[in-house]
Structure formats: structure tokens, C-alpha cells
Design a protein around this nucleic acid. Structure first.
Lengths: 150, 150
DNA sequence: TTTAATGCAAAAGATTTGCAACATG
DNA sequence: CATGTTGCAAATCTTTTGCATTAAA
């Protein structure tokens, strides 16, 4: 799943702006690593990102990829997903979206829904703290696995 | 957070029934490990469970704890939570509930809501696959962290 | 008694860190 | 030029595995 060129450019611009504002140096490595995450919608993990970036930039190291990804996460430029047992995966899609997770193959598909973005929460949650984001996660079996299973 | 005695007993009963039905041996270790998860509501990780069980059963080993927890998970007796960067945590609360996760301290509070259990999903998700469970995750900052921050 | 489960110790992964060399602003 | 960043290699931390011993049914 590839992100539209226009969207990728927008994400790159935003990334550069945030780095400048924060006094973070724009190194080749960081640019290529962010570009890699920004232009895919398939939630790669650190190792996958490492391999893909290495194709274009053979000297890059895995630990730089890790350091950069967590930096991007701290800067709010990427988000992590992936539950406990699997590796951490990264996503540069910052617009409000929800997830359908296949319990069989682990694949996570994004989906959008205005209704879900605006769910009404029970008053009781106000006691727990301040809510910043609401995220719906559907667990199930994806079409591909359903077909394989039969 | 401690679970009511009655509820714990119910969980233990269910655990024993499932094990018998599946031909899984009811060893001391398994009983104590499940009891430990069943009687707490604070989502402990494998190591915490190990330490707590070891207090009562000094010979238990960490790998047995892991093996048992994943077995319980496969049997549908516990559920895992905890996102990528943190250790896997375990929960024996099987009734439909949702989570409030504090982005600061990582603490996950359970909460209940009939409305959320029955959210209406957009038709489009039908194309993704078969949905088994809907789970709402709220991200924010918990009361404790809010107070510390100020 | 038979088969599955445990404990131990060692292995395997994934991720992180210290430090000298290097590139960015 | 000063400082932050990288690459390397080694360390760390969590989780898993092989195997001989032990315990449940």
C-alpha cells in the first residue's frame, strides 16, 4: 500500500519543519528513514525499515534506525502500533483512524469513520483523567485468512 | 486493585473446567499462576506474576510462568495487553471492557460501557473480514500524572 | 504407568548503549 | 568550529527452547 505522492511530500515538509523548530539536525539518515515510513501505509517494523532504507543507503545501521524512529515518535511525527508479542511497528499516518487487526496473521488495516471519531464516552471516564484520543480496535479474521482457512 | 472473592472463585472454577475438558493437567504451578492473574485487576507482566507466585511457591521458574501464561492465553482464559514497547501484560477479566491508557505512566485502567460495547460500525469494515470483538482504547493522561505534572 | 509438565541452563531475539569518528548547522 | 549524530560492536533485557527429571491422571 503506497501513499499518494502529494501526501508524502506534505509529510516530508511537516517533518522538516518540526525538526527545524526543535533544533534537530536534518541528516541524510533521518530524511531517508522518515521518507520510508511516510510513503508506506503498511506499518513496517524497525527491521523492515532498516532493510528498505539500506537499499538506497548501504551504510545505514540498524541502531540509527531505532534511534531515529523513537525520535520521530517523541516528536509526534510517527505513531507506534503492534501489540506486545510482535515487534513494534511504525506509522506516519497522523490523521484520525482506526484499526482492524487480524488475530490470525496479525495484519493491521487502517480504516476511517467519522462516527467512530466522535463516539460519545460514558461520563465515568472523566474520573480517570484527561482524554486525548479515542481509538477503536476491531479484532477478527481478515478476508485472506478466512479464505485460506477454508 | 483486588478482585472480589466470589469472582475469583468463579474464574478458578472456569479454569479448572476448561483444563479438564482440554485434557490439560492441573499442576500446582498452573493453579497458582492462574490464581495470581485471576485475583488481580492490575494487568501484571510475566515477571511480576513470577515474583508473586514465587512468594508462595519458591521453586517455580520463570519459564514455567511464561509457558503457562501463553497456554492460558491459547485456552482463552486470559487476554494479553500492553503495546509494543512495554512487556506483555496479562488479564483474566474476560467480560467485555475497554481501556484507558495513560501515555505518561503507561497504566491501563479498565472501564465498562454498554454503549461502547454496541457501537455501530461503518459498513465498509465488512470488506476487511469477520469481526470478533470491538475494543475502544482511550489515550490520555491519568489523574495521578496530571497532579504530578502540576 | 504413561505422558505431559517442570526446572535448569543456555540460546535466541529484539532493542539499547558507550564511544570514537564524522557531518550538520 | 562546536555539538549533535552516526556506525560499530558489545551489552542488555525479555522471552524461548532442549533436555533430563518429576508429577499428574
Amino acid at each position: 500500500m503506497t501513499i499518494e505522492k502529494k501526501e508524502v511530500e506534505q509529510r516530508m515538509k511537516h517533518f522538516e519543519t518540526v525538526c527545524r523548530d526543535e533544533g534537530i539536525k536534518l541528516t541524510h539518515q533521518r530524511i531517508e528513514i522518515f521518507r520510508e515510513v511516510a510513503h508506506t501505509g503498511d506499518h513496517p517494523d524497525a527491521d523492515q525499515i532498516f532493510r528498505r532504507v539500506r537499499d538506497r543507503m548501504p551504510t545505514v545501521s540498524l541502531d540509527t534506525v531505532y534511534r531515529t524512529l523513537w525520535l520521530l515518535n517523541d516528536l509526534g511525527l510517527v505513531v507506534t502500533l503492534g501489540s506486545s508479542r510482535e515487534r513494534t511497528r511504525f506509522d506516519a499516518n497522523l490523521s484520525s483512524h482506526h484499526h482492524f487487526v487480524c488475530g490470525q496473521c496479525g495484519f493491521t488495516h487502517d480504516f476511517y469513520s467519522n462516527d467512530l471519531d466522535n463516539i460519545r464516552l460514558p461520563d465515568s471516564v472523566g474520573t480517570l483523567g484527561e482524554i486525548e484520543a479515542t481509538h477503536v480496535e476491531l479484532r477478527g479474521v481478515c478476508r485472506e485468512c478466512l479464505e485460506k482457512g477454508r
